[in-house]
Design a binder for these strands. Structure first.
Lengths: 354, 354
DNA sequence: CTGAAAGCGCTTACAG
DNA sequence: CTGAAAGCGCTTACAG
């Protein structure tokens, strides 16, 4: 016998479509009708609220199972005003540096029963803004952002309206907001000082685009460490720009082949480092190298690659924890947290000058 | 002068909180009141619908800007019945194999103006189910799943209710559903045949847990290739289990130190391969090795690591495209797509027996 | 060209 | 212990 109270068994016609946008799924009203109780009673059972007799509860549960009811959280969200979701906007989900960061944010979100909506900005400020505002329109409870833009004034109304926001890896531009960063400056200084201590005087730096905060900080650390060692920096020794292998390869060639050839290189991030290693392997002329960011298998190359390691999972975890503290009602002034970096010597950074 | 029509300027009291769950954000009603027009007219302007005079539109836009209105998509979603979001459930966002897959899914979703909700199952069937059902409660339009579970009957009511679902990397268990897979069997066979062609007779296989589809298929490929070469497989030559380095290291030690020591190894996935490479480097006894899955820097190790490469981005892209085709109304029977793998010789797989 | 009414599927506030 | 009414902020269907 067909149960006509079950919407799945109703005859569907086109006009019905608009009335039931969720593909004929049963609602609490359907469950209530079948169980012969009020809507609110179903709500109580579904949400585990007290004040329902065991017998009533049993009838409601039977009805839920029979109809295959699952609460529509879209409706719940609309009424409650909290979506229990947060947005994470980063440059590229697939980047080995951001992937563990993302996973760490997810774990913290999960502990707070919150879903994670992920988006890649592809290092494009417009795409970042578009994504962030789409997330705001969805009324995510909060945002964790690795910014591509350097102007976040577009976010001010959203933040004022209550969307908690924490920036990671790079600070916000033009607005005051929480930020969790690595000590890029200190890490870069330590790298260069290490090369100097191993006898190098002509040290090059190939970094990411100078408009990116981390790249600028690492360049600053490089310059300061050189100055502290009493070493002048030849203009040909620094090259900021995209991490495209062609660009990096050309910069390396110029530094090593010029009139003042460098004997050591400080690579500004993991992608630069990998390109440099690949190039050096092709050349067969090993030279001293320290890379910013650790990467898998760095220890298995020969020589092993000395790196300045960040802790991407800790960055993500700290950012997410800061976010949930804000969501729990902490209203202090925005603060900047800086995580330390660690030099891991593996051989390439300890080579003497040729 | 303070504009009392702007909700942000209203005096807030506790009772007001419950009436305005979205932190006093202006709604279309507020915009309409300030502009002196009807609610529907605001809706028309916000959604770019025709039939509004330029003058009216101007007044509405002024009102939107003045109040800082942004449409609440939670409400829109509830009414429309499509959330324009899809869920992606995988083992671990941070895994170098899944990260590009995830990014590819995101790109396809973006092209369809759809947001991506990401979740890691941590290879735990219960956690997978919990996550997937939470996404269903949010009424995502579709799901892309790399399953940890081998029984997906829990998804049947959701799929029947219209949530499109595509499985990637591994097929669904106990239900009929679209799946996009790699040719694990063929890839494994090719790897073993390659080792045989280079003179090996005693070849080991260290794989992931046998209950995982990809691991089982690769084992089957290994066995068939050995049989085709007329080689019997000694029981100590296969070891299925977790990818924990301790387990893999022990398995390797047993295979190489036993009474029938292997001269070559086929490693069942990227994590096994990395552990084996690390172990081999520590031993200083190189041996022939082919790994399933390519990985960054595999070409820079010495010898370079010969691999069976999959295309994780293509897996993700194909799965997402299949999903959106279903969402567009394609109603054929579920189908299984298998992507080919590619053997990339780099040296380690071409070493002769010791 | 414009808008009032009804409704998406829940929760809230309240009454019995 | 139980439920009817109102409302979250939009869109739909319809009337003027």
């Amino acid at each position: 016998m067909i149960d006509r109270t079950c919407p799945a068994n109703r005859k569907t016609d086109v006009s019905d479509q608009s009335r039931r946008p969720y593909g004929n799924r049963p609602t609490m009203k359907d469950v209530a009708a079948r169980a012969g109780v009020g809507l609110k009673t179903v709500s109580r059972v579904v949400n585990g609220e007290p004040g329902v007799t065991p017998d009533t509860e049993r009838r409601v549960r039977e009805s839920i199972t029979a109809l295959g009811f699952r609460r529509n959280d879209s409706a719940r969200i609309l009424r409650k005003g909290r979506t229990s979701s947060i947005g994470l906007v980063l440059e590229d989900l697939a980047d080995p540096f951001y992937a563990p960061l993302s996973r760490a944010v997810e774990e913290v979100a999960r502990a707070h029963e919150t879903l994670l909506i992920n988006g890649s900005s592809a290092e494009d400020p417009e795409r970042e803004e578009e994504l962030v505002l789409a997330l705001c329109a969805r009324r995510v409870d909060g945002l964790v952002i690795i910014p591509a833009s350097d102007d976040h004034r577009y976010l001010e109304p959203e933040m004022a309206a209550g969307i908690a926001t924490v920036f990671v890896d790079r600070p916000a531009g033009q607005i005051d907001a929480d930020a969790v960063l690595s000590d890029n400056y200190g890490g870069a200084r330590a790298a260069v000082a290490h090369l100097v201590a191993h006898g190098h005087r002509r040290i090059g730096f190939i970094g990411d685009q100078a408009r990116i905060h981390t790249a600028a900080e690492r360049l600053r650390g490089y310059r300061d460490a050189m100055a502290e060692a009493g070493l002048a920096v030849h203009p040909s020794w620094t090259a900021m720009g995209s991490t495209d292998p062609g660009r990096v390869g050309a910069a390396l060639g110029a530094m090593r082949g010029g009139p003042e050839p460098v004997t050591a290189l400080f690579a500004g991030n993991n992608r630069v480092t990998v390109t440099v290693v690949r190039r050096a392997a092709a050349d067969g002329r090993p030279f001293a190298l320290i890379g910013f960011d650790d990467f898998e298998l760095a220890d298995l190359l020969s020589p092993g690659i000395t790196v300045i390691a960040q802790d991407p999972a800790a960055l993500g975890r700290t950012a997410a924890q800061t976010l949930f503290r804000r969501l729990a009602g902490q209203h202090e002034v925005p603060k900047r947290v800086e995580l330390t970096t660690r030099l891991i010597p593996r051989g390439s950074g300890e080579l003497p000058p040729e």
